[in-house]
């Protein structure tokens, strides 16, 4: 027994998807977290709430609305079609877009917390030493908030790997394109292939445990999730 070729294909796809999503989330999540941590705008609450929505919405709601929004008659679908890209459901890029939305709070919140914990002081000091805004960000904020960034990357990655409901609803279960590990496990269970299901499911348990162990080791105060 062990992993079949289809299982390995699903694992490879999942790792590729989670890596890309984590990268994108760090790139767009960091400015959002920065803004949320430092703004006094009255929109802070609303933006924070929108970012956190996937934490409380069931995947069936997110999947359903994403399917409609990205479908041929939805606003996202109209937009992608006008760019000549076709529609996103049942494609790898559809999963990327959905996962970025779905895993956003897991990346934004740890970074936001870390930046808030820094306070104004280190930035003010750096400014008096004539560090420009970019310089301050990369030489002061990033090193000091590093545990926050690490937590964000690990959680974003792990959460994308663990995603199921949304993928099921917009993915269409295409081998090598949208059939990720969680869907593959579901298929094994539904098809009564319990031995193969155990291999993958057991690996997921070990993987998730190791991820959380790493997280708590690098950042013992991380209790938010």
């Amino acid at each position: 027994m062990g992993f079949s070729n289809a299982d390995l294909q699903a694992i490879g796809l999942t790792l590729r998807l989670a890596s890309l999503v984590t990268l994108i989330l760090l790139l767009i999540g960091t400015p959002i977290a920065w803004w949320l941590a430092r703004t006094t705008s009255r929109w802070k609450g609303s933006v924070g709430a929108v970012v956190a929505l996937p934490l409380v919405l069931p995947p069936s709601v997110i999947g359903f609305y994403l399917l409609i929004a990205m479908g041929p008659n939805g606003p996202v679908g109209q937009f992608t079609q006008s760019l000549g890209l076709g529609i996103l459901p049942f494609t790898y890029w559809g999963l990327v877009v959905a996962s970025v939305f779905y895993s956003m709070p897991f990346v934004v919140q740890p970074i936001q917390n870390a930046i808030e914990a820094l306070g104004e002081r280190p930035l003010e000091v750096a400014a008096t030493l004539r560090a420009g805004p970019w310089d301050r960000f990369f030489t002061v904020v990033v090193p000091l908030a590093r545990p926050g960034f690490l937590s964000a990357a690990i959680l974003g990655f792990a959460h994308t790997v663990g995603e199921f409901g949304v993928v099921l609803m917009i993915g269409g279960n295409i081998p090598g394109v949208t059939r990720v590990v969680s869907v593959q496990i579901y298929d094994h269970v539904e098809a009564m292939e319990y031995a193969q299901a155990h291999w993958l499911a057991g690996s997921m348990v070990i993987f998730s445990f190791l991820v959380l162990l790493t997280l708590y080791t690098i950042n013992p105060n991380q209790r938010r999730f």
């Binding site: 399917l67 479908g71 041929p72 008659n73 459901p89 049942f90 609803m169 269409g172 279960n173 295409i174």
Partner: peptide, 20 residues
């Protein structure tokens, strides 16, 4: 061009939303 629903209800959902 095939996309797979997990059951027949989900298959109809793909078709009725127009995504397929």
């Amino acid at each position: 061009k095939l996309v797979l629903g997990e059951n027949i209800a989900q298959t109809l959902q793909f078709a009725s939303t127009g995504a397929a």
